[in-house]
Amino acid sequence: MSGPVLRKTVLKKTVLKNPQVREYLRMLDAATATLPVARSRELREQITAHLEEALPPDAGPGTIRVELWKLGHPRELAAEAGPVPASALIRLRNRLSRVRWRAWTSIGVVIVVAATVLTYVLLVGNVRPLFMDGISSWYFPRDSALSVETSAGTVTQYTVPERFGQQQGFVIGVENNSDWTQTIVGFGANWPPASMSSAEVAVGSGPAADSGGIDHDVRWDLPESIPPHSLRLLRVLWTSETCLGPGGDLLISDVPLRVRVGLFTRTVDLPLGITLALSGTKASSCQ
């Protein structure tokens, strides 16, 4: 015997639009949700055909209530239509098989998008951070001339006198050893220290800068991108505004930077590997 043939209702004016009837059919759908789809759809089609036949489109609430009562409670009909599958897995499968293809497509799209976003976030999050490449020097020749190198254990310190009220700074090599372009957009939080004003960070570009050198053609910009597997110079300038006094010093061993990778910007603490120090001078130098 061939299976049931379902038909769509094409009548425009129908009692099926009545709220009481719709609620009854909704309860019927819920009651038959664990049955095989074909069986529950067939029963629904039979019940809707019955109601359309039994009730005029403009049937009153009382007439509809009586007819629905005569039909029986949806749970009773569902029980007659077949036993609830004992296996939770089959019940779940029956429920899921009612989900229309549009819903499955939407779910699929959401999963793909979420997976793509998650993969992207994980990839960006695991991008190897910028690191100092060993090049380092005081930016102004006057400081370089007065720089004193001292070592204690594995730490090397380069100390210059603080030049109160004047611009000082340093240049370091920064390498991007990842497969992503990384763009330096500024200092990270809590930098520069309060003793420095007008601090600025910039990335050098130009033929000499791209190979780690400095000449008059180097252009300093921010934000500036460092392509994958490339070296660039990073310049940090500030105006020293704390009169450190004799014996006082200001140590710089790392520079926090805001670095954009893809769509995300993160703070990267860039260790210098050395310590740059400003030392105090006699008070008269602070005037």
């Binding site: 019955h50 039909l71 009773e76």
Partner: peptide
């Protein structure tokens, strides 16, 4: 047809607990 069956069974008296159960039976 369905409603016709239901009406005749109902008219016979005492055969139906509820009209709707005729349809699962037909299936």
């Amino acid at each position: 047809f369905g409603l016709e069956l239901v009406r005749e069974l109902a008219a016979a008296g005492g055969l139906l607990t509820s009209d709707g159960t005729v349809y699962p039976l037909l299936n």
